[in-house]
Design a protein around this nucleic acid. Sequence first.
DNA 1: TACCTAATTTAGTGTAGCCTAAATCACCAT
DNA 2: ATGGTGATTTAGGCTACACTAAATTAGGTA
Lengths: 242, 242
Amino acid sequence: MPKAFAQSTESVDDYLKAIYEISGGQGKAGTSEIARRLRVAAASVTGMLRKLSTLSPPLVRYEKNRGVSLTLVGQRRAVEIIRHHRLLECFLHHALGYEWHEVHAEAERLEHFISEDFEARIAAQLGDPLYDPHGHPIPRKDGSVPRCIDTPLPGVNAGVAVRISRVSDEDPAALRLLASHGVRPNVVLHVVDKPSRRSGVVLRHASQQPFRVSAAVAARIAVEVLNPPQTATHRARKGMAQ
Amino acid sequence: MPKAFAQSTESVDDYLKAIYEISGGQGKAGTSEIARRLRVAAASVTGMLRKLSTLSPPLVRYEKNRGVSLTLVGQRRAVEIIRHHRLLECFLHHALGYEWHEVHAEAERLEHFISEDFEARIAAQLGDPLYDPHGHPIPRKDGSVPRCIDTPLPGVNAGVAVRISRVSDEDPAALRLLASHGVRPNVVLHVVDKPSRRSGVVLRHASQQPFRVSAAVAARIAVEVLNPPQTATHRARKGMAQ
DNA sequence: TACCTAATTTAGTGTAGCCTAAATCACCAT
DNA sequence: ATGGTGATTTAGGCTACACTAAATTAGGTA
């Protein structure tokens, strides 16, 4: 069996994943945003992009000063790594009892080193899950991605009911906080109030005490709007004042 | 929590483990045997040994042309990696259904990257096992190693009953073969015959057909002698002819 | 159009770990 | 004592991937 991605290293994988997440798989990504994500100097990114574009097959399309995008081969690898990451998060949570704020760091390391066999075994044991513990869709083996509604919570108006769709897995403190308020994927909440542009959101479960989450934390939450009178995004598009 | 082995890399870990296995933890190891195990050039080993001996704290004691030995810190790290490896083998076997010839390669990669937390969780889930699927003792968290009898099978006389103690995990083909004959740790067998010095060993279960294993495979098996009329080793020590 | 600023690239380095080829060392047997 | 042989080290290089500092480019604004 010819190893599918012999040219791939941990570092290369990290770049591909970052480009995928920034560009949404298709579009372009910029040097400095990649640098910010990977916590490396922008100059290092330039070097790596040049390299990735000259491999055969090339993993990215790159024209200097114009950004990068993934080739099909690059996309496949990125999606594979993301599948590893999210399956591992599920596995750590369900099979080993990790809390949802603990899974990301461990998965981030292991995603590069598990075999296809390991991947297949944990997927089977978990029943081929479609979403990870944070609500992120797990790419299927064929590369397709389960549907996932994600309206950013900060764009939702007061008075609206929402279903939590997903929460970014990268900030353990935020996850712990949200867990303590019972905020998890698929939970239904009401947006009680949005005091001001940058001071967060007040939420409440069915008929319980409301609680506030900071703007920084709210920005990490995506939701499905259940009774949509109108979202902030719609208002903005139409140039309305209130 | 100060990371205990910040200076450790995958490569460093591999050297420490090789030295540990060659030297038995205490004694010395030679450059070229390390090179052979790790499949690197002897010159590369020299360079690494010099480096490991000048870290603070040093991980090995090294005098050129006189071999290396592990320091206490080096030993602790080596034992930790071996614990990871063997716990992973157990976990892959029991929790994910890997066959015993499949576990080594996967564990060899993952042993470097699992966290202490992961280690603790799988150990707990497995009930703190003392031996891996091949019969190798799993070092305890405190560094102590469960007792393990290992008389090399090639040194055992015909006519003797033995209990399989452990089988080297590094040769998948040998493991598959042995599995097909029902040779596993703790299984009791009789040594029927040893045709000649280098032509292997004939074994048999309680009252079944005998079968032969090659000298190469026999060398990978360690046993406990159950009814010791006399082992080859004893004869050699006493200078006896038969 | 000319400029300013942020984004990006170039140039020059550094570290880790590997390699080959060419010494040198240790030890054993004569 | 000495020569040979295998083990080991030295010398010199290579690749991957990071860094800083110094150019350069893109795109918006005066």
